[in-house]
Amino acid sequence: MASVVSRRSVLPGFGLSLGFTLVYLSLIVLIPLSAAFIKTAGMSWADFVTTVSAPRVVASYKITFGISLLAALVNAFFGGIVAWVLVRYTFPGRRMVDALVDLPFALPTAVAGIALCALYARNGWVGHWLDPLWAGGVARLAAWVPWIDWAGWLGPKLAYDRPGIFLALTFIGLPFVVRTLQPVLAELEPELEEAAATLGANRWQTMTRVIFPELLPALITGFALAFARAIGEYGSVVFIAGNQPLHSEITPLLIITKLEQYDYRGATAIAVVMLVASFVLLLLINLLQKWSRRYYRL
């Protein structure tokens, strides 16, 4: 034991930099977050349970985590394609497209919400033909498979309903996937694919056996970032969600609702549940990433 402690790193400055790291993390992350826990600690356990398991709150967890997951998955797929195109091909306007990817980072989320709403509402540019199409699709599904509540699950409208939440969360999550994948893709040497080809692999095999395993850890990181970002998103979603209790209310909105009634403890109680759930999920995703690295790099 003693030998482990006394063994010094060859790199100097460990004590100082670790000190900085801890102070910085405490000021920026740990202390604000622990405030939520401390505030919640003033509640009795029974009150806490009633608050965080009220039907509206439980419904909002399902909506927030479910749609965030869906949006992150879609972003992982399409964001992957975007990153691939941006790295692997040269075409006129590539720099422009590349810069466009960052816009969701920079745009105030309220603006994003209002813009998406203007676009996808029934009187919007896209909405005026896509919204009836979506409504028709949902109605047809309901006719074919009547024992599932399609309108309840999918929502019969684009804007002001669940699809709106999905659109907003996809929008804000996209750059996370693209920006984490790009450097890894750029590092990936074409020689690897050439070697695979000379060794007799067809294109599909090269893709799935050579390229994909290399990309998977970065893809999972991007997915996790997009997912985490979506869980906490408020500004853009409230404008486009319709905010129907039990149907399209996201958890951050319920936190605001509690604050609006000066119920600080109730608000922090829900926040604590979200924090813990997000932490566990991110931890799981991190483990998954580690596992994927080990699995593919035998």
């Binding site: 919007g124 409208k157 002001y160 129907q244 209790p245």
Partner: peptide, 20 residues
Amino acid sequence: VPVLDSGARGSTTTFVQREI
């Protein structure tokens, strides 16, 4: 009520501009 906006101005926008 198909849309429960979080504030009054939001509601006015929904009614006037989104024509809901």
